[in-house]
Each structure stands twice: as structure tokens, then as C-alpha cells.
Design a protein around this nucleic acid. Structure first.
Lengths: 205, 205
DNA sequence: AAGCGTGGCTAATAGCATTAGCTTGATGGC
DNA sequence: GCCATCAAGCTAATGCTATTAGCCACGCTT
């Protein structure tokens, strides 16, 4: 009969452990019953702290998204241009490999209308803003920045998603392939910047 | 008491309808109960035709993967080099947008060891082989082809995955962003080919 | 016509989320 | 220091899911 002393944050923390323990499918395997068991509490008791299983998943997604943004920001501080973009891509992939379950949660898109997803949308905007800031050093024209951000997100996310799901054969040489992708992203963003407004073509004076 | 006249293929066909009706989350929402209802049959009867829900999902994934490969092959026939790569990317995205639920099924990776996933693995190999064939026209060195295939898969898949999950704001201008991605992929594969073995540098004789 | 395999059924089990309503612990005000 | 209140836990119940076991009858084959 002693109180378990739970709280919203404590429940989320236990859910994160669950997700981490489950590998890439940890989010899909997340269950209120298991969280309750790990808390030493009956399942319905969790509803005193969290609205539903879906809400708990959203909490996990929010934490993961913030962690990814923070790690990416830390990796790119003090860098600019290609250097920053490479660091961003590396940090992104490192986070996904270190926390596959949480990374899967990042993929959960917030509802564009639901008011309870406002915080989630803000976290997503922070991530997009970070990528935008990293790309700012390339001198992209304003109307092309959005394209560059999308291309970078697509490339990096596509690679780590395929890597985590086992979509690639032969685990070896994955680093080399990722380097090729990052090289391509750097070159692609550079030409995207130069194509619209060539500031000082040094190649052929 | 009249027989429903089901078969493995009929069950899979009904499952595909279910998946199609559910949008991007159609695969996750696929349920034996709903398939049985649409077949006018009790749920356990389905087990006479399919091993489990997971097996049915694998069947759906197999169909989707084959369809995607076929559509991509049809789009690239008679084309080569950048032309073929652009057509491949476009066909890929078109399929994903026309069949979001089925495309989600494509992401299901087959177990590398399970014997019942052999057909699924073969279908994946066919898809990878097709991408490899498309990239062959770029004259890539053998040890770089795998990198190029991975980069292309990552880029295209990442884009359509983010697009389908609503990861991008503003539906407008998505075509332009996708064009930027494809341009980047073409340029990236080209430089990957030229970097290792510059056959006939015409730029500076 | 008889037989048999197969495709359907019902019944039962177990796991899940979720809601309703109760009880008791801890904590606030007097 | 005691009482009232609120919150955090509980049990019970509902309804959904997949899955297994065992039964029965249809329809084809002989």
C-alpha cells in the first residue's frame, strides 16, 4: 500500500527505458502494461499521469527529437559551411545508431492541427531551424533554402532509416557509403547555392 | 453454410484493399479481424490460408516490393544514364504517393536468416539489381557501385518517407524540392564515377 | 454412392488499452 | 493536533486483438 511516487516524468523515463531496450522496434513494442510492470504498479494507474498510450509515445518522440536537436547543435557549434554540414550528418547518424528506438520515435510526425501537439511541432521547427542555420553558411538564396533543408533531411534520414531497418546488406563499408552521401550533400547544396546566384566564379575568370 | 471460396491469394488481395484504404498507416492498421469481416468469414478461418498476421504483412510487403520494382523497371526501359536515374526516382515517388500503405510495406525488411523470407529477400535483391542496372550507365567502378546504389536508395526513400509521413511543411513546392534532390543524385553519382577513374577528361585537354 | 480432405465454424485463452468507481494515503488549513 | 480534501493508487469490467483446439459439413474423387 505504499505509494509508488510516480509522476509524468517518471513514467516517460520508464517508457524511454522500454524503448531503448527494444532496439529499432522498441517504440512499436512499447506497451502500457510493460511500463506499469517496470514501475511496480497496475496498468490503469498510469492513466493518472499520462493520457493514453499514444500520448506516451508522443512524449517519447518529443524527448528524442529534442535530444537529436541538442546533439546536432553541439556537434555543429563553432563550425560553418561544409564542415558544419558534415558534423551535422555525423551527429545525426551517431544518435540514430546509439538510440535506434528513440530515433524511430523521431519519425512520428506531429498532427499539424492538434493543440496537444504544439510542443512537438515546436521541437520539429527547432530541428528544421538548426539545419537551416547550418546551411546558411553556403549562401543559399532564400527561396532555395527550403529545398536544401529538405534534401539534407531526406538524404540523412533515408540512409539511417535503411541502415537501422537492415535494408542494407553487408554491414561493412557502411561508413564509406555514408561518406559518399555526405560528400554528395555538400556538393549538392553548394551547386544549389551557386546555380541561382554565382557570386564570384573563380574557375574561369 | 455455403463456402466462401477463399484462397491464399484472395486473402492477400483483401489485405491489400485494407492497406490501401488506410493511407500511410494502412499497414499498421491491418488486422485479421477486418480482413475476415471483409471476406464475410470468421477470423480464425483465415488461418487456413495464412500463417499469422505477421505472415500476411510479409505477403503484402512482397507484393508491394514487386510492384515497385516492376513500375520502376517499366519507367526506365529504353533510357540510360541521368535520364534513366531521373525516371527511376520519379516512378518511385509516384508509386509511393499512389499507394502510401503499400509503400510503407516496402520498408519491412526481410529477416536475413528466416527461410520463409527467401522470396522476400529475392524481391529485394531484384530491386537493388534494378537500381544497379540503372546506375551502370554512369560507368562507376565496381567497388563504388554499392555506394551509389545506397545513396540513391537513401535519398529517394528518405524524401518520400518524409513526404508521406507529413514531415514536410507546405505541400506546395514539393516537386521543386524533389527535383533538387534528383539533380543532386545525378551529379553525385556522376562525380562518384569520375572521381575514381576519369576515363576521358574533356574539360581540360 | 461412399469416403475423405479441406475450408469453414464455435469455443476458449491470453494479452492489450481503456473506463468507472472505490479506497486510502498524504497533505493542507484551522 | 485533527479533519477535510485531493490525488494516487487499486479492482472490476468492457471490448478489442491474435491465436489454438476441436468439430462439422461441403464437395470432389473414386
Amino acid at each position: 500500500m505504499p505509494r509508488a511516487g510516480l509522476s509524468r516524468d517518471a513514467v516517460v523515463r520508464l517508457a524511454l527505458e522500454q524503448v531503448d531496450a527494444g532496439g529499432p522496434t522498441g517504440l512499436a513494442d512499447l506497451t502500457l502494461a510493460k511500463v506499469a510492470a517496470s514501475a511496480g504498479v497496475a496498468t490503469p494507474s498510469l492513466y493518472k499521469h499520462v493520457g493514453s498510450l499514444a500520448a506516451l509515445r508522443r512524449e517519447v518522440a518529443l524527448v528524442a527529437l529534442d535530444e537529436l536537436t541538442t546533439a546536432s547543435a553541439a556537434a555543429t557549434v563553432g563550425r560553418a559551411g561544409p564542415d558544419a554540414l558534415r558534423a551535422l550528418a555525423r551527429a545525426w547518424r551517431d544518435y540514430a545508431r546509439a538510440h535506434p528506438g528513440r530515433y524511430a520515435a523521431v519519425q512520428l510526425a506531429p498532427d499539424p492541427d492538434a493543440p496537444e501537439d504544439a510542443e512537438h511541432r515546436a521541437a520539429g521547427a527547432r530541428m528544421v531551424a538548426l539545419v537551416g542555420a547550418v546551411l546558411h553558411g553556403f549562401g543559399l538564396p532564400d527561396d532555395r533554402t527550403i529545398d536544401a533543408v529538405r534534401v539534407v533531411r531526406a538524404g540523412v534520414h533515408g540512409f539511417v532509416a535503411l541502415e537501422l531497418s537492415g535494408g542494407f546488406r553487408l554491414p561493412e563499408d557502411l561508413d564509406r557509403s555514408f561518406d559518399a552521401l555526405v560528400d554528395m550533400l555538400v556538393a549538392g547544396v553548394t551547386t544549389l547555392a551557386d546555380a541561382s546566384s554565382p557570386p564570384a566564379p573563380k574557375e574561369q575568370p
